[in-house]
Design a protein around this nucleic acid. Structure first.
Lengths: 365, 365
DNA sequence: TGGATTTATGAAACCGTTTACAGGGAACAC
DNA sequence: GTGTTCCCTGTAAACGGTTTCATAAATCCA
């Protein structure tokens, strides 16, 4: 590997001049610069980033810490981050901490010194604490934080609002008995969506305490399993709000197997608007979240912080999700819904199929 | 930020001793080590990675270069990489080069010096050339390379085999007129799947030249649009093989809108086996690819190379995908398929709906 | 008891940059 | 011709570690 010295020697100049060519073009005679660049090209010289950041204390890299990594949502998020970051000459150091808590601390420590800042999705209490620690060393931009930290900017999706909109829409269609498939309890997105769900009910004068809430974990299978629970519940809900699209899609599959039509028998609404949502059967009504924009905004904020120093006060951008009405929520008055008996599901060769309900003849609302 | 000197001073030892504590515990008296670690903890000292890698020439990081970043497949891939990397104390520097070609070169240059190696998905000619250049500087492990490069290990999915299996299965069910929705031409995965498709036909004595191949780009919408083309083709295919699940799912939606039943009117098979595949209507028969394992294997290879030096010869792991038979491929003899006329699609509020076919009365095979 | 060996530590060179400071020469004003 | 500027370039000191080599103290063995 050629070093700055090799280039300097070959070009017959000092290393300082070579360095200047790469940092402050204006300070060096255009002809000399040209010459040096030529030599450097021939030698395949690339300034050593480690040496560089040792003196400048800048790495042109930031860390991205995600609680998990699956499904379309995270692809999109990372895509948005990557796009804006590279457009500005930054690299991203990625890590997801789907392991234990010390792991997260370890990882963030390992990142320190390699990065100029951290973009972190801190959706639970533990990770917020870690974020606060990290903040002492480098700038931090939070994604959907479960609470704000002094000196951290944040960009968040208004989950409460999104969920409320979804529920309100269902109520507007005439639904009074709406169930929810919730996400992981410790996850703030999940909690906020549940809150929004309840607020929506309350605002319409319905009792949120009476509504069925089935726990879930954001995976398709959880939604699939929730189907049976929901259908057995009495009175049977006429609509279901799932905390994300994955679970909504799992739910759709389950309802279908039980012989229930969506939206004719039961309306379903999801959250996220993954690319596949519009291609479901029926096309899934869902709350559109601009995942890529979420990441992009975070990067822009980080760049601002890095450029402007610490003078700007803590800022928070809230992205408003928008309800994307497709067909799974229906347009019918649920009073007209066909009341059909609960039948055995059609046979399925789904590998991870849940145990079937046994000896259940008929379930009527 | 505390430096090694601060720790040394506070502990009353030389910096060499402190350094040794972090690198070669055995070389230093246990008591002294204990003491130093304590002081270091109090001072919140973390060795500066830049300085460290300046002398050691190791970064404990590797670059991951992906051609694109969307959908479940890439999430899973990155997840696999991340998991194994962190388990071995490595960080990952991520970049996708969905932009132009120089961009890729620039990015890989920017990575040089920050990484010990590169894991790169080089699915087209251009990126292979870049990979070859990168190889001159650091070890490279290729993911699904369109061709091998001297001195690069690789881990690949046997796309040809997977596609052939899918087609053979369809043929085994009695299908003789099978169409394909292909992926991007320059993409090797897409090309191999097409090759496998043709091989499967050839082996069964069918003419691959006669088969309808609709171009696509791996996105859902491409599959959706392909639906109309396929239905209009005469004789109308009784089965379709899509080069990935996204397109298969788009196709499913399109067929449904045109009033065609899957698998009763047309059988559909996808590729990838994304988490959602099993929850489609009907559950999607697809070729299962272990995306996370693909990434994990690549990391393990990289670690081996990094540990063992360049002594080991070029090695290539080929992962065999397996056909996951669900319901979209059906089990019927297609001779029994109902021949129904092509109707106007049901109204859809899909935002990005393609223009409808005009003035077409009926399409019979 | 003394030389050989082992163990624990320190001194200093080095990794490849950036940058403050200094200096040389040309252009300009007087 | 001298003093100022301005422009360009070089010298050398950081930056924060690792590692070779040297050395002092402790242990071993005869």
């Amino acid at each position: 590997m050629a070093t700055i010295r090799d280039v300097a020697r070959a070009a017959g100049v000092s290393i300082a001049t070579v360095s200047r060519v790469y940092n402050n073009q204006t300070l060096v005679n255009p002809q000399t610069a040209q010459h040096i660049l030529k030599i450097a090209g021939d030698l395949d010289y690339v300034p050593n980033p480690a040496a560089r950041s040792l003196t400048t204390r800048r790495t042109h890299t930031f860390g991205v810490l995600l609680p998990d990594l699956f499904g379309e949502f995270y692809s999109e998020l990372i895509r948005g981050i990557d796009l804006i970051a590279h457009r500005n000459g930054f690299q991203i150091l990625l890590s997801s901490f789907f392991r234990n808590s010390e792991d997260l601390v370890m990882t963030s420590k390992a990142m320190l010194g390699r990065i100029d800042g951290v973009i972190m999705m801190a959706t639970d209490e533990r990770s917020i604490n870690t974020a606060a620690k990290v903040r002492k060393k480098v700038p931090v931009v939070l994604l959907n934080p479960c609470k704000m930290i002094e000196g951290c900017h944040a960009v968040a999706v208004d989950n409460v609002r999104g969920a409320k909109d979804a529920v309100s829409h269902l109520i507007g269609l005439g639904h009074r008995n709406i169930a929810m498939v919730a996400g992981p309890e410790e996850n703030i997105d999940a909690r906020d969506r549940l809150t929004g769900f309840r607020q929506g009910l309350t605002e319409a004068g319905l009792d949120p305490g009476a509504a069925l809430v089935v726990p879930g974990d954001f995976r398709e299978l959880a939604g699939y399993k929730a189907g049976a629970t929901i259908l057995r519940h009495k009175p049977r809900p006429t609509a279901v709000f799932a905390a994300n699209d994955g679970m909504a899609i799992g739910l759709l599959a389950s309802l279908r197997e039980w012989g229930f039509g969506v939206p004719d028998d039961i309306a379903v609404v999801g959250f996220d608007d993954v690319a596949l949502a519009g291609f479901m059967n029926p096309p899934l009504t869902t709350v559109h979240v601009d995942a890529s924009g979420l990441g992009g905004h975070a990067v822009e904020m980080m760049l601002e912080v890095l450029a402007g120093g610490a003078d700007s006060e803590t800022r928070r951008i809230v992205l408003s999700p928008s309800l994307k009405i497709r067909q799974s929520c229906g347009t019918l008055d649920p009073a007209q819904l066909v009341r059909r008996p609960l039948m055995e599901p059609r046979p399925s060769n789904r590998d991870d199929a849940t145990p079937r309900l046994q000896g259940e003849e008929e379930v009527q609302p």
